[in-house]
C-alpha cells in the first residue's frame, strides 16, 4: 500500500500566505513578479520608441513604473550585500544567544555602516523618484 500525499504547492496564489507573517517579503515577491513581466514590456516599448513616434508620456509612465517596482529590489539587494558582508549580524535572524557570544569573534567593526547602507540606498532611490516626478511634471 503506497502512501498517499497531497500537494498544495506550485501555485503563484500561495504567495498570499506571506501576508500573515511577513509583509515585507510579500511586497518584495509581488513587485518582483510584476517587474519581470513589465521590464520586458518596458524594454520593448523603449526599443519601439526608436522606430515609432511614441509620446513622451508613455515613455515616462513606463520609466516610472519600473522605478517604483524596483524599490523593493534595490532595498533587498543592498540588504543582501550587507548580510553577506557581516555574516548575518545585521539584518539576519541568527540565534540570539549565538549572536551575543559570537559577536566578539565574527561581527565586523563596520557593522553599523552596513546596517545603514540599505537605508541609504533606499533613500537615494526614493529621492530619485521624487526628482523624476519633479522634473517631468513641474
Amino acid at each position: 500500500m503506497d502512501k498517499q500525499v497531497y500537494e498544495l504547492r506550485g501555485r503563484q496564489s500561495n504567495l498570499s500566505r506571506l501576508v500573515h507573517f511577513d509583509k515585507e517579503a510579500y511586497i518584495h515577491m509581488l513587485f518582483y513578479r510584476a517587474l519581470i513581466i513589465l521590464s520586458v514590456v518596458a524594454g520593448a516599448v523603449f526599443f519601439a520608441s526608436y522606430f515609432f513616434n511614441l509620446s513622451t508620456a508613455v515613455f515616462r509612465a513606463f520609466f516610472m513604473i519600473i522605478w517604483v517596482l524596483f524599490i523593493p529590489q534595490v532595498f533587498e539587494s543592498a540588504k543582501g550585500m550587507s548580510v553577506i558582508a557581516t555574516r548575518g549580524f545585521v539584518f539576519g535572524h541568527l540565534n540570539k544567544s549565538y549572536r551575543s557570544t559570537a559577536e566578539k569573534y565574527l561581527k565586523p567593526r563596520a557593522a553599523p555602516l552596513f546596517k545603514a547602507f540599505p537605508y541609504a540606498v533606499l533613500a537615494a532611490w526614493l529621492a530619485g523618484l521624487v526628482l523624476l516626478v519633479l522634473t517631468w511634471f513641474i
Binding site: L18, F21, D22, E24, A25, H28, M29, Y32, E76, K79, G80, V83, I84, R87, G88, G92, H93, L94, N95, K96, Y98
Partner: peptide, 26 residues
C-alpha cells in the same frame, strides 16, 4: 532563492537560512 527572508523570520532556532544561502552565493 529570491531572498524573501521569510524562512529566517519563522525559524524557531535562529538558524537563519536566508543568511546561509546568501553566504553560499557569495
Amino acid at each position: 532563492c529570491e531572498f524573501a527572508g521569510s524562512c529566517s523570520k519563522v525559524c524557531p532556532k535562529g538558524v537563519d537560512p536566508a543568511t546561509a544561502i546568501q553566504l553560499l552565493k557569495s
